[in-house]
Amino acid sequence: MTRGRTVTRRRAAAVVVVAAVAALTGCAADEPAGARLVVLAAASLTDVLPPIAEQFERTHPGTQVVLSFGGSAGLAQSVAAGAPADVLAVASPAALQVVLDSGDSVGEPVVFARNSLEIAVPTGNPGAVTGLADFARDDLDLAVCAAQVPCGAAAASAFTVARVDPRPDTLEQDVRAVLTKVRTGEVDAGLVYATDVRAAGDDVEGVTLPPAQRVPADYPAVALSGGASPDLAADLVAALLGADAQRELAAAGFLPPL
């Protein structure tokens, strides 16, 4: 009786271990090649990529596109450090450089969209923000991207152009973190991309900048050599320039590539 129970328990433990190992190592190994495309993308693409990915899945039956969003610089670093991904789409060509240097890319990067800076304020504009000059005000709580990520680099250029010495209260790790601080009303203004203002809907209002301060940013995408199916990855990069994807991007407020 006792012995039987011990054996059963041992067997159960063995099953658990085998299942865990299979779950950890097996993953997509048994699926046909190219069934799963992992796309790492800039935070500002959070709302526009899912419909584009769905279009791609429809035109490539059997393909599943998995999206993951974050700060461009961090994504590029993780790809260079060996993160398994098929496509990388970031908010500045500079952020892509580390991946081009490390040889983790296949083919040339393709610029598929452009974006420009805009000030986001909570609905009602409690701080009465009218332009970049307000970012020098000490009485306001202000959020800007950290200089290490593309939106922060763009913000720095904008402040230089506007000759403003900004006094931000927090430097966020990606543009969506800035947007969140505005949305929750924790700051009176944040410097984000025009598309972020649009994506936040009624939660925030936009304060447009004079053209010289908008600092247009190129969005490049590149297929990665570490992925399971570089051909399919190249297809996806090409699809970003297709009419369907460009329509989605335009609807989200992105500018077409030059």
């Binding site: 959020a143 950290a146 931000p168 209260d169 927090t170 430097l171 966020e172 790790q173 601080k181």
Partner: peptide, 9 residues
């Protein structure tokens, strides 16, 4: 607390 050098970082 956010993230700002010298203050909250």
């Amino acid at each position: 607390a956010g993230s700002f050098p010298g203050r909250t970082q």
